[in-house]
Design a binder for these strands. Structure first.
Lengths: 226, 226
DNA sequence: CACAGTTGTGAACATCTTTTCACAATCGAA
DNA sequence: TTCGATTGTGAAAAGATGTTCACAACTGTG
């Protein structure tokens, strides 16, 4: 899943870019002002940040400088109505990776998005490993182990396990799981979540002396040591 | 359960926003004037406060400033008929997190609501812990302890305990409890509340040298040290 | 297009929580 | 002190929630 952060306050532009990107299988988060963009960019691992220069709260250039100063190296694509060479230079100086003047052709936009993401993929191959107790989950190789022993998880099981690990020691409600793993608002209609938790328990907890996945009746589930 | 406080005096707007939000699984409390909004905002933990700027009693900007001064960091979405950039800036200065000009499209409204709630979820990673005397209640892990000793509470018991902690040293009437925990106006028909207070006392006070939950005959209950 | 693996559904069952009810204890005003 | 009103307690019924299993639907691969 490739995540893109779009920082833009004009609803029309948001709507068309978001839709277009989603049709191309990107996952898009939208921030409507500079501050929110900053928050999101700091807390989530995006593959690309697209920001308008003129946004409420903080302008795109400042935002860009700020993020770079914070050590965030995610590629940044700037959008703006200004298009003189000088304006572009200011943008690049602020740390942007590319610069696109409005109005633009969606095809060109998409091409640049792809280019930026491809470039960063080649540069960045970090091995991300999430851990809890003796459980390890490698995000790049998708290998899960418990006390060194390999556990085979399916794609959905892996997603769910990853979510548990990212929220360790916190009670996670089913609504939350439904939204984040299945991307539905509903969750009440079937017992899918229970079934999957059950799958995970069989693979991750069964046969081990201490259980990690606990149910909090009426509240949700929690990953914690006994 | 995600709780939203809506401060708005115009019945039509209230009706449509409340309904729309509820269809999207939010729980909505409505305040019809600034004062009532203030009271509710201070007493209950909302995930989001939506306020019109023009409301009886106190205007939305003052309310916003007041809440921020009180240390309440709940995201605030302002609604208004005014829409110039200056108006927006005034709103942001007062401490609002977003600003929406009427008339607006419900979809956009909903998008912003979601965005604000999501953002605040991400911003507050720190473990939220409520304390009173040697009693601690962790909102994220749902763990309750008294002088370090773990106490297991059911979902309802936890809700009630949380309510006590949020209103410590204040007398809480049964009507209040009924409304906030059971979401009914009634309360007279059964002794549910007494039963639950009894459960809490057994788990939280029994066996400890000092009692925290006290009965105020004819008035309600209060959390205080002896 | 058949197959194996994965994902989703429904139903039966188990478990835990919430509510109700009958009655006991306590309170405060007369 | 007495009496009605209010609050507390224990047990059991009613209800909600969680677990497990068998199987159906779907997916991608050869």
């Amino acid at each position: 899943m490739i995540k893109i952060l779009l920082i833009e306050d004009e609803p029309k532009t948001v709507q068309s870019l978001k839709q277009g990107l989603e049709e191309n299988h990107y996952t898009v988060d939208v921030a409507y002002d500079g501050n929110m963009g900053k928050q999101l960019a700091m807390r989530t691992a995006y593959q690309l940040i697209i920001t308008d220069i003129i946004i409420p709260g903080m302008n795109g250039l400042e935002l860009c400088k700020y993020l770079r100063a914070e050590g965030i190296q995610t590629p940044i694509l700037m959008l703006t109505a200004l298009s003189t060479t000088d304006d572009k230079l200011v943008g690049f100086e602020a740390g942007a990776d590319d610069y696109l003047a409005k109005p633009f052709d969606f095809k060109e936009f998409l091409a640049r998005v792809k280019a930026l993401i491809k470039r960063s993929n080649q540069t960045f191959i970090e091995a991300q490993v999430l851990k809890f107790a003796d459980l390890e989950l490698d995000l790049t190789s998708k290998i899960v182990t418990r006390s060194g022993q390999k556990i085979n998880l399916t794609a959905k099981e892996f997603q769910l396990m990853e979510y548990f690990l990212r929220n360790q020691e916190k009670v996670i409600s089913k609504a939350e799981i439904a939204e984040n793993i299945w991307e539905v608002e509903d969750e009440g209609s079937s017992n899918l979540i229970e079934v999957y938790v059950n799958y995970l328990r069989k693979k991750v907890d069964k046969g081990f002396p201490s259980k990690l996945i606990h149910t909090q009746f009426g509240m949700g589930y929690i990953l914690r040591q006994e």
